[in-house]
Design a protein around this nucleic acid. Structure first.
Length: 342
DNA sequence: TCTGGGGTCCTGCCGCAC
DNA sequence: TCTGGTGCGGCAGGACCC
């Protein structure tokens, strides 16, 4: 039986900011966008004191401001969080080399071959992370990644939850479907129209019905996930498939010169990122979000991979020309996909 | 009225080659 | 020569993740 451990840092961005500036401890703290709650942007992380006001991640900063005007609002400081993240990952890797990175503040460890009880391992990891960074995390341990991730979320902050195969019916099935990895807001609403609100209710549906409603791939995934089945291995090494840059304007723009200048700037940034990381790519995609929030893309695949800014810019402008720019533009983005190592 | 930025994966559709 | 099935790459959109 595998033993998979999921580590999830508690309100990570907010916790790092509070470590840097202890005067913020105990205050409602909201990290997101430019840090100005009167401007466009969404909440990346809210401290637990801010969550009491109903503030949560992905909420518009302006809404967060209305809910709690006296909260402290800060911009996202990725460099600072990355540094702390690197130290945490160092601690984890030393503990167990079979590690899968999941973003800046999460990781899976395969502790199957560590000859110690799960609880003891988790407690040691927690102590080492506090020792190294002063920050707390929540840990879930289960026979697979899917259940370990659900478990780490069950008691936050500073939690430790162990789920066994025998506990699935009693502890997983009562949870709302939204707790399942891969079930987002759209699927949640759709399942509700089928009278399915819990993971257990989802597990009561036959496979053929799920495939009929959600397609072969996702239908089968839901069938297995609702039963706690997940054989997916830890991904310990991975190569990026695409790289992109995008910007949302403070005020929607309609001027072609501004649009062209922005696309040229984004193209340069993407090309610089690719050169720095040592990649070339083939498919250039331009993304345009209009003032009504409708988002469209146009793509062009080159004959030969490149990371030359001139080639990428030419392709980007070919894509841009294929848009009808009648409405004002809210967001522009440039992506290069089909990446390969130089 | 509001809805970031950086990604992945899936689906449906189209044209093309065999 | 015509027609249809099939597989595949490219493209556009959408859902989801952190």
């Amino acid at each position: 039986m595998r033993r998979i451990l999921h580590v999830d840092m508690d309100a990570f961005f907010a916790a790092v900011e509070q470590k840097i500036n202890p005067a913020l401890i105990g205050k409602p703290l909201v990290i997101g966008g430019s840090g100005d709650p009167t401007k466009r942007g969404v909440v990346s992380t809210a401290s637990y004191d801010a969550r009491k006001f109903g503030i949560h991640s992905a909420m518009p900063m302006r809404t967060a401001y209305k809910l709690c005007p006296h909260a402290v609002f800060l911009p996202v400081n990725y460099e600072a969080y990355s540094r702390v993240s690197g130290r945490i990952k160092g601690v984890l890797r030393k503990f167990c080399p079979i590690m899968e990175d999941v973003g800046i503040d999460e990781a899976f460890l395969d502790i199957s071959n560590i000859d110690k009880p799960s609880e003891e391992i988790a407690k040691e990891i927690k102590l080492k992370i506090i020792d190294e960074t002063g920050l707390t995390c929540s840990i879930g341990i289960a026979p697979n990644k899917l259940l370990a991730k659900i478990a780490s979320d069950m008691q936050k902050p500073d939690g430790l939850t162990i789920i066994m195969k025998d506990n699935i019916e009693s502890r997983i099935w009562p949870l709302p479907v939204r707790k399942l990895w891969g079930v987002g807001p759209k699927t949640e609403v759709y399942l509700k129209t089928m009278d399915i609100e819990t993971i257990g209710a989802l597990a009561s549906l036959p496979l053929n019905k799920l495939i009929e409603r959600f397609g072969e791939s996702y239908g089968r995934y839901l069938y297995e996930a609702s039963r706690g089945i997940d054989e997916s291995p830890l991904v310990t090494h991975w190569e990026p498939k695409s790289t992109s840059r995008e910007i949302t304007f403070e005020k929607d723009i309609g001027n072609w010169q501004d649009i062209a200048r922005t696309i040229a700037g984004l193209t340069r940034e993407v090309a610089d990122d690719m050169k720095q990381a040592g990649y070339k790519g083939r498919t250039v995609t331009v993304k345009v979000r209009f003032s009504d929030f409708k988002t469209h893309t146009r793509a062009k695949t080159l004959v030969v991979s490149t990371n030359l800014v001139d080639k990428i810019r030419m392709a980007a402008f070919d894509c841009l020309k294929r848009f009808e720019l009648k409405k004002k533009v809210r967001l522009l983005g440039v992506r290069v996909g089909g990446l390969e190592k130089v």
